[in-house]
Amino acid sequence: VTVHVDGVEYDFDNPEEALKFAKKVAEDKNGTYEVHGNQIRVT
Score class of each variant (00 low, 15 high):
17 E>L: 08
26 A>L: 06
32 T>E: 07
29 K>G: 10
7 G>L: 04
24 K>R: 11
35 V>L: 08
24 K>L: 09
7 G>S: 06
7 G>V: 03
42 V>Y: 02
9 E>D: 10
15 P>M: 15
17 E>F: 05
34 E>V: 13
31 G>I: 04
24 K>M: 11
27 E>T: 11
37 G>K: 05
7 G>K: 04
32 T>K: 11
4 H>K: 07
3 V>I: 03
40 I>R: 01
4 H>Y: 14
24 K>Q: 13
4 H>Q: 08
13 D>N: 10
1 V>S: 06
12 F>K: 00
35 V>D: 03
2 T>F: 06
4 H>P: 01
43 T>W: 15
41 R>P: 02
36 H>N: 13
21 F>R: 00
4 H>M: 12
39 Q>A: 09
37 G>N: 06
1 V>G: 03
41 R>L: 15
30 N>M: 09
34 E>T: 13
42 V>L: 05
33 Y>C: 08
13 D>M: 09
30 N>A: 08
20 K>F: 10
21 F>P: 00
6 D>S: 06
26 A>N: 02
28 D>M: 14
17 E>G: 04
20 K>I: 12
43 T>E: 10
8 V>L: 11
39 Q>S: 11
1 V>M: 14
22 A>R: 02
38 N>I: 04
31 G>H: 05
5 V>N: 03
1 V>E: 02
27 E>K: 14
39 Q>F: 13
11 D>V: 15
31 G>Y: 11
21 F>T: 00
36 H>D: 13
15 P>D: 08
4 H>R: 08
26 A>R: 03
21 F>G: 00
35 V>S: 05
13 D>P: 12
29 K>M: 15
21 F>I: 00
30 N>V: 05
19 L>Q: 04
18 A>L: 01
24 K>Y: 08
3 V>H: 00
8 V>W: 09
35 V>N: 04
43 T>H: 14
38 N>P: 04
13 D>A: 12
15 P>H: 14
34 E>L: 09
25 V>T: 09
29 K>H: 14
2 T>G: 03
43 T>M: 14
21 F>W: 09
15 P>Q: 13
10 Y>H: 07
19 L>V: 07
22 A>K: 01
34 E>Q: 10
39 Q>R: 09
8 V>G: 05
41 R>N: 11
35 V>W: 13
12 F>A: 00
4 H>D: 06
15 P>F: 15
27 E>R: 13
20 K>T: 11
8 V>R: 12
41 R>H: 15
32 T>F: 12
43 T>A: 08
31 G>R: 07
8 V>H: 11
9 E>F: 11
14 N>G: 08
13 D>F: 08
24 K>C: 13
40 I>T: 02
16 E>P: 03
1 V>Q: 04
10 Y>K: 03
33 Y>H: 03
36 H>G: 04
3 V>Q: 00
39 Q>E: 12
13 D>C: 14
31 G>F: 06
27 E>V: 09
23 K>H: 06
22 A>Y: 02
1 V>F: 15
42 V>H: 02
41 R>F: 15
4 H>V: 14
17 E>I: 06
9 E>Y: 11
3 V>T: 01
19 L>N: 03
26 A>M: 04
17 E>T: 08
39 Q>Y: 13
29 K>T: 14
12 F>D: 00
11 D>T: 14
34 E>I: 13
6 D>G: 08
3 V>D: 01
7 G>N: 07
6 D>V: 03
17 E>M: 08
16 E>H: 09
40 I>S: 01
24 K>I: 07
8 V>S: 07
12 F>T: 00
4 H>S: 10
3 V>G: 00
18 A>D: 00
39 Q>V: 15
19 L>E: 06
22 A>H: 00
7 G>F: 05
38 N>W: 05
4 H>A: 07
41 R>D: 06
3 V>E: 00
42 V>W: 03
31 G>N: 03
20 K>H: 09
1 V>P: 04
5 V>T: 04
32 T>V: 10
11 D>Y: 15
18 A>G: 09
2 T>K: 10
2 T>E: 03
6 D>M: 10
20 K>A: 14
8 V>P: 00
6 D>I: 03
22 A>C: 06
21 F>E: 00
34 E>P: 01
2 T>C: 12
38 N>A: 06
32 T>W: 14
19 L>M: 09
14 N>A: 06
23 K>S: 07
36 H>F: 14
23 K>G: 04
4 H>G: 03
5 V>R: 02
6 D>K: 04
41 R>Y: 15
35 V>T: 06
42 V>S: 01
30 N>W: 05
